[in-house]
Design a protein around this nucleic acid. Structure first.
Lengths: 230, 230
DNA sequence: GGTTGGATTATAACGCGTTTTACTTTTCGT
DNA sequence: ACGAAAAGTAAAACGCGTTATAATCCAACC
C-alpha cells in the first residue's frame, strides 16, 4: 500500500487548506508558521517535513490559484493579441475578490528572505506567458523571429513587479492594471508585426493619459514623489 | 548650535561606513544588525535611532553608490539612445568589481521583509531613468507624445527585477546585462520614432540569439526549467 | 502478534530584526 | 553653574522562520 504516502498527501492538503483559511480570515498579520501548525492541527515540525519552508507552502497556495486562473482565462476566448490584456484584467478582478488573501500570499511567497530554489519568477507563471506568446506569434501578430521565452520573460517580469508593488501596498489594483497594460503595449509593439503594432500603438495614448491622471489625482507614497518632482 | 545634529550625522556616517566595510569583507552572511553595531562601535539601539531599520541603512548605502554611478555614466557621454544600454553595461561592470558586496546590499535592501515607506523602486533610481527618457525624447529619438514618467517606470522595473534575480543568485551578470538590454530594446522600440525604432530593431536579433545561446549552454536553476520545457 | 524503522510529536534552542526598559551621559536655557 | 530635557547606552525581551533533540506513534514485514 501507499497508505503512507496517502497520509502524507492528506496532511499536505490539510496544511495548504489551513494556510488558505488563515490567510482569508486574518491576512498576513497573524499568519505565522506556529499559527498555521495550530490551525492545521499538526506540530510545527510537520510543515517543515512536508514542504521544507514557509515559502514552499505559499508557492503551493499560489499554484493552486494559478490553475483556476488559467481555466477562467481560457473561457474568455479572446483573440491572440487581446488576451495579454485580458489576462491582466482578469488577474486584477480575481485579486479584487479577495484582496487581503492575495496580498498575504504574495507577500509571504516573495517578501520573505526566501532565497531558495524558485524565487522571483516561478515555472508555472513563466510557461503561461510563453504559451500566450507562442500563440500570438503563430497567429501572425508577433514577428516570426521573436523568441517566445525571451519575450515571455520580459512580459512576466513587468507583470510580476507591479503585482509585488500592489502586495506591498504601494499601488492599488487599477494602477496595477494600467501600468501592466502600458508595459505590455510597449513590449508587444516592439515585437509585433506591422498591423498588430498599429493596433497596439492605438492603446498607448489612452493608457498613458489614464496613468498620469491617476498620479495627479491620488498621490500615494511612491506616486507622490513622482508627481512632486515633475 | 547644531552640534547635536553634527554628532548625529557623524554617527550616521560611521554606521554606513561600517556597514559597507562589513559587506565588503563578509558579504551578506555574517552581516547582522548586531555585527554592524559592534563594528561601528555603537549600541544596537543606535542604528535604530538614527535610521529606523536595517532596510533604511541599506538604502543609504545604495544611494551613495548611486551618486558615483551617475557620475561615471555622464563621463561616457553616449548618445541619447545608446546611453540606456551603456547605463546597463556600466552597472554590470560596477557590480563585477565587487559582486559580493553589491549582492549583499541589494539582498538586504529588498529581500528582507521591509514593507516600509520606500520598497521596490526608490526615488533616486526612478528620477535617473526619467531624466534619460526626457533627453532621448528631446533629441527626437522617442515619440514626442511619450510620457517620461510612465516609460521610465517600465524601464526601471525591467532593470530592477533582473538585478534582484542576480542578487538572489539566479542569473549571472552577463545574463543580467543581456536580458535588460533585450527588454529595453523592446520597450524603447515601442516608444521610439521611426528612425530610432529601426536602429533598435537591429539590436533585437543579436540579443535574442545571445540569450538563447546562454540558456542552452549554462542551465542554472531558473534557466534549467526553461530549457527543459522547450 | 510482536518487532522494527521511518514519520510525527513536543519542546527547546538558535539567530535574526526589532522594541522596550531602565540607566547614564550630554547638551542647552536660565 | 545648575537643573531639565534630550539622546545614547546596555541588556533583556518579543515574535519570527528554522533546526535539533529526544520521545512516541503507527504502518509494514517476519
Amino acid at each position: 500500500m501507499a497508505s503512507r504516502e496517502q497520509a502524507k498527501d492528506q496532511r499536505r492538503k490539510a496544511i495548504v487548506a489551513a494556510a488558505m483559511r488563515l490567510m482569508h480570515n486574518r491576512g498576513d498579520s497573524g499568519f505565522s508558521m506556529r499559527a498555521l501548525a495550530e490551525a492545521a492541527g499538526v506540530s510545527i515540525a510537520t510543515p517543515y517535513n512536508l514542504f521544507g519552508s514557509k515559502q514552499a507552502i505559499m508557492l503551493a497556495v499560489l499554484d493552486t490559484g494559478m490553475a483556476l486562473y488559467e481555466e477562467r482565462l481560457e473561457q474568455l476566448d479572446a483573440d491572440p493579441l487581446e488576451i495579454f490584456f485580458e489576462a491582466v484584467t482578469l488577474a486584477t478582478e480575481l485579486y479584487a475578490e479577495a484582496p487581503k488573501f492575495h496580498q498575504a500570499v504574495l507577500f509571504s511567497a516573495y517578501g520573505d528572505g526566501g532565497r531558495d530554489y524558485r524565487a522571483v519568477f516561478g515555472d508555472p507563471r513563466f510557461v503561461f506567458w510563453r504559451t500566450l506568446v507562442e500563440r500570438a506569434r503563430e497567429a501572425g501578430e508577433l514577428d516570426a523571429g521573436i523568441d517566445a521565452s525571451a519575450l515571455a520573460l520580459a512580459l512576466g517580469q513587468q507583470f510580476f513587479i507591479c503585482i509585488l508593488e500592489w502586495a506591498y501596498g504601494q499601488i492599488d489594483l487599477s494602477e496595477l492594471e494600467c501600468r501592466v497594460h502600458y508595459g505590455f503595449a510597449l513590449l508587444l509593439k516592439g515585437a509585433a508585426t506591422a498591423s498588430a503594432a498599429d493596433r497596439l500603438a492605438g492603446k498607448i495614448p489612452e493608457l498613458q493619459a489614464h496613468l498620469t491622471a491617476m498620479w495627479a489625482a491620488e498621490p500615494t507614497a511612491v506616486v507622490a514623489s513622482r508627481v512632486q518632482s515633475r
